[in-house]
Design a protein around this nucleic acid. Structure first.
Lengths: 186, 186
DNA sequence: TTAATCAAAATGAACGTTCATTCATTTTTT
DNA sequence: AAAAAATGAATGAACGTTCATTTTGATTAA
């Protein structure tokens, strides 16, 4: 069994269940079924461990979301597919969402990736630019566009995970991505 | 001088500067210019202190945002004013934003206000319902509507505070609230 | 096949530090 | 001079990290 992976999975599970605040190395070790010292064979320390996990999730996310991208298709089709894939990514592994949110809003906790936080948004940027060039997306500042896409996505996932709405209901995702499209299209 | 208030302000400043992770009682006391023990005269402990601060900010926010509400005016006017006031609230005291974000995404950190997190959204709900009744706001699920309003606001403020956009530029707020309106209006 | 050897992997008790909280004492206010 | 407010050193628990020791598993020798 891959202990490194088991340790990372433990952190993910624990952060989601109890938050960063209650995270400690002993719990991580227990959850992973290894000794406390073992963690230090694979990671420099707590901080390194957390950063490694963040990097892993961001990579997985970008990979998954860009699967949907096809330059041949119209911008709208790419957009719908990207939104749906992003939602699927987080609903399939909700721990990822919780972790990313907590990591993002912990200033100075792990300094390295300060601007890198916006790495997550690169796929969106790509699509936005293309849409503007073709004239199908409104010509408003990038930041506003970004806010109109990323913001609702974040919130709807949050609401879903808090059982305030159900994105798995038939047509729910479609209704959502169409609403976002209406906000950003000309 | 009101020591209780000074202590709360210290927490706000420190959480924004260094994050929850590096927050400790000694620093809070130093920043507030009191002894560590003094904090316990005004609060039961660290947890109580954090919760009190959260409650305070939520109250201030709702008060400020609802200032803009006037039943006599059309829904759109109320909406624009509310959005602008919410933005002003956070730009005027960015520490509030950072604190609320970190508090919201710390599951089980301070259990009390789990569902209460949505208290912040009550003014938005109020307006939404009214707009739907009058037929000026699209008849899509509340959660989706909420996501289309609250999400972009969060993100645009985040982008502003990260210097990725400038909401103080002439017309910036207007452009933003109009874009959001386009997303939610019929 | 069995025994011996050794490096790599893993362990978890121990260490030093940090931190929230307490409380005997001092300072301030009434 | 009594009460209330404030202090900050002391306390003990919790935590991240280390490291001497043990276990594992592959390799070699008999």
């Amino acid at each position: 069994m891959d202990k490194k992976q088991a340790i990372l999975k433990s952190v993910l599970k624990l952060v989601n269940r109890e938050g960063f605040y209650h995270l400690n190395m002993k719990k991580i070790a227990q959850e992973a079924g290894v000794a406390a010292g073992t963690i230090y064979l694979y990671f420099k320390g707590k901080e390194d461990l957390i950063n490694a996990l963040y990097g892993m999730i961001v990579n997985e996310f970008n990979l998954k979301v860009l699967e949907g991208y096809d330059d041949g298709k119209p911008v709208q089709a790419n957009f719908f597919r990207m939104i749906d894939l992003a939602i699927d990514f987080y609903l399939g592994e909700p721990d990822n969402f919780s972790f990313i949110e907590q990591y993002t809003y912990a200033p100075f906790l792990f300094k390295e990736n300060q601007d890198e936080n916006f790495t997550l948004l690169l796929p969106i940027y790509k699509m936005m630019r293309e849409g503007k060039k073709q004239g199908v997306i409104r010509n408003i500042p990038d930041a506003v566009l970004l806010a109109l896409i990323h913001g609702p996505m974040n919130t709807i996932i949050k609401l879903h995970l808090a059982h305030k709405t159900d994105l798995n209901k038939k047509g729910a995702k479609q209704k959502f991505h169409e609403a976002v499209w209406q906000a950003i299209s000309v």
